Deep mutational scan, measured.
Amino acid sequence: TEELDSELELPAGWEKIEDPVYGIYYVDHINRKTQYENPVLEAKRKKQLE
C-alpha cells in the first residue's frame, strides 16, 4: 500500500519530493534523474523478475 511505501528507507543520494502539481516523485542526486516509482520497490520488483 502507499502507506508502507513511504516507510521504506531510500538509498543514499535519493530524495522524496511531494509536489502539489506532479505528486510524489523521487530524485536520484547521484545520477541526476527523477522517477515516480519508489527506488526501493523498483529494486524489489526487478529482483522478483529474475
Rank of each mutant, 00 (worst) to 15 (best):
Y26V: 01
A12G: 12
A12Q: 07
P39S: 02
E18H: 11
T34V: 07
G13M: 03
E3P: 01
A43K: 07
I24L: 08
R32H: 15
D5A: 14
Q35W: 03
W14L: 00
R45T: 14
Y25C: 07
L49I: 07
V27Y: 04
L10N: 02
E37P: 02
R45C: 07
W14C: 05
D19N: 02
E3S: 07
I30W: 04
Y26L: 01
Y25V: 11
Q35D: 02
E50D: 14
S6G: 12
Q35T: 14
K44Y: 12
K47D: 09
G13L: 01
E15C: 01
P11Q: 04
K16I: 10
D28P: 00
E37Q: 09
D28C: 00
E42P: 05
Q48N: 15
A43Y: 05
K44P: 06
L49W: 07
S6W: 03
P39C: 00
L41C: 10
P39R: 01
H29E: 05
L10S: 04
L4G: 11
R32F: 04
I17A: 08
A12P: 11
K47H: 09
W14A: 01
G23L: 00
Q35R: 05
N31T: 10
T34E: 06
I30G: 08
A43Q: 13
A43C: 07
L49H: 12
V40A: 15
K46M: 05
D28N: 06
D28T: 00
I24P: 12
H29G: 06
G13S: 05
E50V: 05
T34F: 04
L49A: 13
E15H: 04
E2L: 05
L41K: 13
E15V: 04
K33C: 12
N31A: 09
L10C: 05
R45P: 12
E15N: 03
Y25N: 03
D28M: 00
I17T: 07
V40W: 09
V27E: 08
A12S: 13
I24F: 14
G13N: 13
L4D: 01
S6R: 15
Q48H: 11
W14V: 03
Y36D: 06
E2W: 15
Q48F: 05
A43M: 12
E18P: 02
Y22V: 12
V40N: 13
L41Q: 14
N31H: 12
E42I: 10
Y36H: 11
Q48A: 12
G23C: 00
L49M: 15
G23E: 01
K47M: 11
N31G: 14
D5P: 14
E2K: 08
I17Q: 00
K47N: 06
R45V: 09
Y26A: 06
N38A: 10
V27L: 12
Y22G: 13
I30C: 06
D19S: 09
V27Q: 08
T1L: 10
D28Y: 00
A12C: 15
L10A: 06
I17E: 04
L10H: 01
S6P: 05
I17W: 06
Y22N: 08
K46C: 11
P11S: 04
E7T: 14
G23R: 02
Y36C: 03
T1W: 05
E18W: 01
E7L: 12
D5L: 13
L4Y: 03
V40R: 11
K33F: 02
E7D: 12
I24S: 10
Y26G: 04
W14P: 02
Y22E: 13
G23P: 00
P11F: 03
E7S: 10
L8Y: 11
S6I: 09
K16V: 06
E7M: 12
I24Y: 02
N38H: 15
P11V: 01
G13V: 01
A43E: 13
K47G: 09
N31E: 04
R45M: 09
E15W: 00
Q35M: 09
K47C: 07
A12V: 14
V27M: 14
N38E: 07
V40K: 12
K16N: 00
E9T: 11
Y25H: 09
V21F: 14
H29D: 02
T34N: 07
Q48D: 14
G23D: 00
K47P: 10
P39G: 04
Y25F: 10
I24C: 08
E42D: 08
P39D: 06
E18V: 11
Y25W: 05
Y36A: 11
D19W: 00
K44H: 08
I30Q: 08
R45L: 06
G23Q: 00
K46V: 12
Y25A: 06
G13F: 04
L4F: 12
R32Q: 15
G13D: 02
E9Y: 02
E50R: 00
V21H: 07
L49Y: 12
T1A: 03
S6K: 10
E42K: 03
E3A: 04
I24T: 14
D5C: 14
I30F: 08
E50K: 07
P11H: 02
K16P: 00
R45K: 14
N38W: 10
A43R: 11
G23F: 00
L49N: 08
N31V: 01
R32P: 02
Y26K: 02
L10D: 01
N38M: 10
Q48L: 06
D28K: 01
E50Q: 03
E42N: 06
L41T: 12
I30H: 12
L41R: 13
D5R: 08
D19Y: 00
A12H: 15
E18T: 14
Y25P: 05
E7Q: 04
G23W: 01
R32N: 10
K33Y: 05
L10T: 02
Y36T: 12
R45D: 09
K46S: 11
E7G: 14
E9S: 11
P11T: 08
I17S: 03
L4Q: 12
K33T: 09
Y26F: 10
Y22H: 15
P11R: 03
E9P: 12
Y36F: 06
D19G: 02
G13E: 04
Y22R: 14
E7Y: 04
Q48T: 09
P11W: 02
V40G: 12
L4T: 13
K44Q: 11
G13Y: 09
H29F: 01
N38G: 03
E37I: 04
G13A: 03
D19K: 02
D28F: 00
D19P: 00
P11C: 07
L8I: 05
V40Y: 07
K33P: 00
K46W: 05
N31K: 07
P39L: 02
K46Y: 09
K16R: 13
K33D: 12
Q48C: 10
V21T: 15
L4I: 15
T1P: 01
R32K: 12
G23K: 01
L8N: 02
H29I: 05
T34Q: 09
P39Q: 03
L4V: 12
D5K: 15
E37M: 06
D19F: 01
E7H: 08
D5E: 09
E2I: 15
N38R: 11
E9C: 10
L8D: 03
D19A: 02
